[in-house]
Amino acid sequence: MRETILEVKNLSYRYREDANWALQDVSFSVIKGEWLAIVGHNGSGKSTLAKILNGLLLPQDGTVIVRNTVLSEETIWDIRREIGMVFQNPDNQFVGATVKDDVAFGLENNGFPVEKMIQRVEEAIDLVNMSSFVDHEPHHLSGGQKQRVAIAGIIAVRPSIMVLDEATSMLDPIGRKEVLETVRRLKEERNLTIISITHDLEEVAAADRAIVMNRGQLLAEGTPEEVFALGEKLTEIGLDLPFAAKLSQSLKQAGIPVSNIHITDEGLVKDLWTLYSKM
């Protein structure tokens, strides 16, 4: 039986009484071990949602439940032990002089014994393939390496859920690929639940399921393939389809019978190869 690890019920929030709702009656759930992408343009409400999930803001209406614990002023620290956040700019998260010092920071704050802390730090750094950089200064690493160190710091504490809050938006294509591959591997090896909050539909392609936000409301929900099939509805709200999805749509409109709307270049190439090998 699939376990619901996080549930958002009728969540609403606005920053001033005379302002529009940043979130309005948003409901969804997350299954343990899945990767959920929450995508939307600037002002869609996804950043407000990220702040609420980590207890930086509290719901004005509705509830957030993590492992049967309802988010409130009294339970904020319990929730934060369950949810680890990786932010847009990793430089803002670094506090240690070296990679190993930085990964150890969260464990020190939680009072872990030194022996256990050393073991967890080594394990977490190895999991993100940064063992060769343990004595390096985090600020001197590449963007992708910095985010992998930030992920190691989260993994060492062993939360149930890892939230990536625009964590790849400042990276070049190589760094973005490094981070997404690391996250995918951790999800599979650790059964870690991933929530990635992003405006980049390329990142959505890596997820198991996606939610599209627009003007504080949930616009659509489904697999990446189902979400990308919305096509023009996504571009109308300011989102840009990945190249493979746009090309798939153009080929279908031109009468070329590709099997579906592809979310990756590899899938489209394979489909075209299969199609033309039969001709």
Rank of each mutant, 00 (worst) to 15 (best):
V26F: 05
L180H: 11
R67G: 04
V121P: 03
Q24E: 08
I125F: 07
F133S: 06
A245R: 01
E188M: 09
Y276E: 00
P159N: 13
K278N: 11
E181T: 03
K32P: 01
E82M: 12
L6I: 03
I256Y: 06
A19Q: 09
G43Q: 03
R14N: 07
L239C: 00
P138E: 06
D165S: 07
I151L: 13
A150E: 15
A22G: 15
V157S: 05
T4M: 10
G175I: 00
V86W: 04
F28S: 06
V39I: 12
G175C: 10
D102T: 05
S259G: 06
R185V: 13
L219H: 12
A210D: 07
L180A: 00
Q24G: 12
E17P: 05
L164F: 13
M130H: 02
G255E: 04
A167T: 04
E137W: 03
Q93C: 14
F243L: 13
K177V: 06
N92Y: 07
I174D: 01
N109L: 00
R67K: 10
Q147H: 06
G144K: 01
D135M: 02
V103G: 09
I154R: 02
P242D: 10
S29V: 10
S72V: 01
D208I: 02
D240A: 14
E123D: 02
G62K: 05
I195Q: 11
L241M: 14
N68V: 00
R67A: 13
S169A: 12
G40Q: 14
H139L: 15
V227Y: 06
N110F: 10
L71N: 15
Y13L: 13
I194W: 13
G153A: 06
T264Q: 03
E7S: 14
K46W: 00
L107S: 11
T193D: 13
R81E: 07
G144R: 01
P59N: 08
L186N: 14
R14Q: 12
R81V: 02
G153W: 04
T193C: 06
D208P: 07
N92F: 09
A206L: 09
E3R: 12
V204Q: 05
E203D: 11
G106V: 11
P257N: 07
F228K: 04
G96H: 08
M85Y: 15
L251G: 05
E236I: 01
V212C: 11
V39A: 09
E202D: 15
R16S: 10
A220H: 06
F28G: 05
E123W: 11
V70E: 15
S131V: 02
A50V: 04
L141R: 13
D18W: 01
I195N: 11
L218T: 08
N20A: 13
D78W: 03
L239R: 06
W35H: 04
P138L: 15
H139M: 15
V258M: 06
